[in-house]
Design a protein around this nucleic acid. Structure first.
Lengths: 209, 209
DNA sequence: CCGGATCTCAACCCCAGGGTTGACTCTCAG
DNA sequence: CTGAGAGTCAACCCTGGGGTTGAGATCCGG
């Protein structure tokens, strides 16, 4: 029984290449090809394939989101991610989203076929690099030091991270709201933040909260 | 070119079974069989195989230590671990020690063959359970406590926590901005949040980011 | 004593974001 | 078949937050 596969890649060359490549492999049936994530999800719903082979970076909907959708709506269909860069951060995200396998685009036909077969059989194939990163865990946690920020700015950042509004922060620090806004603007500029939501994330990553 | 394999298992039945099983597979050559870890290391040194298929629990030298030795002294030889219990703690240890793949003893012949081929090609095959455990190791607390929120709301919350604006979230989920705002309003009401800054903090405490 | 950094404050503009209401569709359990 | 929940979308209002400029007060090191 052949493994039924849907391919999704926005680059025509890659997509067509994959399709013709996979068609030559025994035990692999390419039943559809999508050019973006949205279409990929639709085709999965339509054809109920064994495996979705999906690129990470795509317009309309990226591979991570497509993976999440497919795993949520069609748990029978396994997802194998294909990407250009093995050190892409979203690789881990994709695996957490439920991707079964992971391949780089320089993989040869046999490797791809093997990964598809494995995924269909419930096994999981990942690239050596990714495996190492998984095993070592997220120990990379960078030391994005708080340096550059003045004590007052750090203070304000912490309060932002607690969900306080500007007026609340002003009351808390016993200064005017204008002052708070000034600190916040400096802080945003220094840390390259757009709004307080990003600031909260920043603070949490720094371990301020 | 066939993949040259050395098998190591202390149980005679399993060992002989594996050998005969693997000999039936195309592209696999079993060139030696060991009954403990010490012997396995010796046979690897002697035959320089592509892959060592090794049981975790063995007398004289267990699979983890054998893996470490082989990876240190014969980096050309990949190691695939075979064991009875997928929840064995030493599984992670073995992977850290440099094992390329991981199989349970209820794997069928094709799965084993695939894992050996993959290992020889530099890929890594792991059992689904093990993959899940590896991934959970890198994530924080599970999102089980996100009770009350619908999947879509959780999705939106995660994206908020990444610092995305409403328009960006809409683009990402391929819906209109109005829909995003609706989800956000529901989400805020349920979780008793005032603005997205508090939402980010909430998400981080839940381990969503 | 001067320059720089920090902290403070004000007035202004503008829009993203949050609140509200209402509506259409689909699915699924009862 | 019906009602509830989920997801989708639109129109409206209005405040808070972010951007900008400019400026006075304090402190410290060179």
């Amino acid at each position: 029984m052949s493994v039924r596969v849907v391919v999704a890649d926005d680059q025509t060359v890659v997509r067509d290449g994959l399709v013709t490549l996979l068609k030559l492999l025994p035990g692999i049936d390419v039943i559809a090809a999508a050019s973006d994530g949205r279409e990929a999800v639709e085709l999965v719903a339509e054809h109920d394939p064994d495996v979705l082979l999906v690129d990470l970076r795509m317009p309309a909907m990226d591979g991570v989101e497509a993976t999440r959708r497919v795993r949520a709506d069609h748990p029978r269909t396994e997802v194998v991610v294909l990407t250009t860069y093995s050190d892409d951060d979203s690789v881990l995200t994709a695996l957490r989203a439920g991707a079964r396998g992971f391949l780089t685009k320089d993989a040869d036909a046999e490797s791809i076929g093997r990964a598809l077969q494995a995924a269909a059989a419930g096994q999981s194939i990942v690239d050596a690099d990714v495996q190492r990163r998984l095993i070592e865990g997220t120990t990379k946690r960078v030391e994005a030091s708080v340096s550059g920020l003045t004590p007052r700015e750090v203070e304000v950042l912490r309060l932002i991270a607690e969900g306080l509004s500007n007026t609340e922060i002003a009351r808390h620090l016993v200064v005017s709201e204008a002052t708070v806004k000034t600190h916040i603007n400096h802080l945003f500029a220094k840390a390259n933040l757009r709004d307080r939501a990003q600031a909260v994330a920043y603070a949490y990553r720094l371990g301020l909260a």
